[in-house]
Amino acid sequence: MVSSVCEEREPGLSMVVIGVDAHKRSHTLVAVDGIGRKLAERTVGTTSEDHLKIVEWAGQWPNARFAVEDCRHVTRRLERDLLSAGCAVARVPTHLMAASRRSGRAPGKSDPIDALAVAHAALREPDLAVAQLDGPTREVKLLVDYRHNLVEQRTELINRLRWHLHEIDPNLHVPARGLRRYCVIDELARRLAGRDGLVARIARELLARCRELTMQINALERELRDRVRVLAPTLLEVPGCGVLGAAVILGETAGAQRFRSKDAYARFSGTAPIPVWSGSSSGKVRLNRGGNRTINCALHMIAITQVRGIGPGKDYVDKLLARGKTRKEAIRLLRRRLSDVVFRALLADEHRAAPAKRPTTTESAPLPQAA
């Protein structure tokens, strides 16, 4: 453990931000005052006992708040332990640290430099999303990510299987997306049963694996449907929002109440446009390619569904097209509007569930109490 403290400090600091550069084996912390001057530095391990030492170390600054780089799998235990101890924790998107590194006086890259960049980014951006204790939405995210991985495996397997089927019989027709259906899989297995040779054997094994993956994917979809209907009934009422889209939004948002406004949520989802004007050319904006692209994709699918006639999106897009907007611009504006609709639905569902909220169980032991 390494620790170094600046010798000169001003008494009565109004605000202290502790930036955290997190890794699997160690966490490096740098404390800065309200104008960004470095106060102290410390490196600790990643166990709950080490996190207790962080809380005790931060106790010398009563108004200190933590800022961690937004890499959830690495920082999840740290965030949980800090929140359980009553500390305020903000999540800093990775791209916000780049400007802090470029403007820093110390060139290069190290854990203390990165932790200092996190703290400076948190000072520069006061409206960052705050971290919350894990709840049911994290379980939804884990299920969504697991299903996504299985779908990718099945797609890769199907592509390989189709080449083997073409080699066995070029006239063997398999419908597009047919290998997701049990009836097509069973019929193809019947036709391959009497074939000899290594290619046919591999094809039969791939087909069996495809059926197994399809069963797992369908089971996960049923589980997600049951969970989402309980957690987000208002979100499901949004026209064009299906169970999988709602599950993606729930898991990636991780609590709408941690955003200060619908505009902050729009920046998080990448639907808020970026201004690109100067002088007399005021009011021009361009596409925001940042933000959470997974939520952005889910909002885009809702927009496309509404444009096809399900919900009010079609009338809105037609009105924009009549004003001279292109189809891409119109759908982009519809996504921005849908971001607000989804944000209000998430808040409504969270407020509805608040009275019945119970303590969240965690997989690992809670933070030990100080002696």
Rank of each mutant, 00 (worst) to 15 (best):
R124G: 10
A117R: 07
D145E: 06
E221T: 13
P126F: 10
I202T: 15
E156P: 01
P126A: 13
A176P: 01
A200L: 07
L207G: 04
A121F: 00
N171W: 09
I217E: 02
A203K: 02
R154C: 10
A200S: 13
C183G: 12
N218P: 05
L150M: 09
R162S: 06
L133E: 03
A122T: 02
R162N: 06
N218E: 14
A219M: 06
L143W: 00
L143D: 05
N149T: 14
A193E: 14
L179S: 03
G178C: 09
P136M: 00
V199H: 00
L150W: 03
T155W: 03
T155A: 10
A208Y: 04
D134C: 11
L123Y: 10
E212Y: 06
L188Q: 02
L128F: 03
I158E: 07
C183R: 15
R222Y: 04
V130K: 02
A121R: 00
V151S: 04
L198N: 11
I168H: 08
R211Y: 01
D134Q: 09
A203D: 05
R229E: 08
E223G: 12
A203L: 05
D196H: 12
P170Q: 04
E156T: 12
C210D: 07
L179W: 00
V130M: 12
Q153T: 11
L165Q: 06
A129S: 10
R162V: 06
A189I: 07
P136W: 00
A121G: 05
D196P: 01
A131L: 07
A203C: 08
E139P: 00
R160N: 07
Y182G: 09
E125K: 01
L150K: 11
W163N: 11
A122P: 04
L188G: 08
V144M: 10
L198Q: 14
R209I: 12
Q216Y: 00
P175C: 01
R181H: 11
E167R: 06
A122C: 12
E125A: 13
R225N: 08
R222I: 11
D145R: 09
R222P: 01
N171C: 13
D127F: 10
R191N: 12
V228E: 01
I202C: 13
A119Y: 02
C183E: 11
C210E: 10
R229S: 06
T155S: 09
V151C: 04
E125P: 08
L220W: 01
E125D: 13
Y182N: 15
D127T: 15
R162G: 03
V174N: 05
L179V: 12
I202G: 05
Q216E: 15
T214N: 11
V184Y: 02
A176H: 08
N171L: 15
L133Y: 04
E139A: 11
D127G: 11
N218A: 15
R180L: 13
I185K: 07
D134R: 03
E205D: 15
V118Q: 02
D134M: 06
T137G: 01
L128P: 04
C183H: 06
Q132D: 06
V228H: 00
V184C: 08
I217L: 09
R154M: 05
E221P: 04
R181F: 04
R190H: 10
A176K: 09
D186A: 14
R162E: 13
I185G: 08
V174Q: 06
R229M: 07
E187I: 14
R160F: 02
N171S: 15
W163R: 10
D127N: 14
V118L: 05
L213Y: 06
I217Y: 01
V228Y: 01
V199Y: 00
K141D: 01
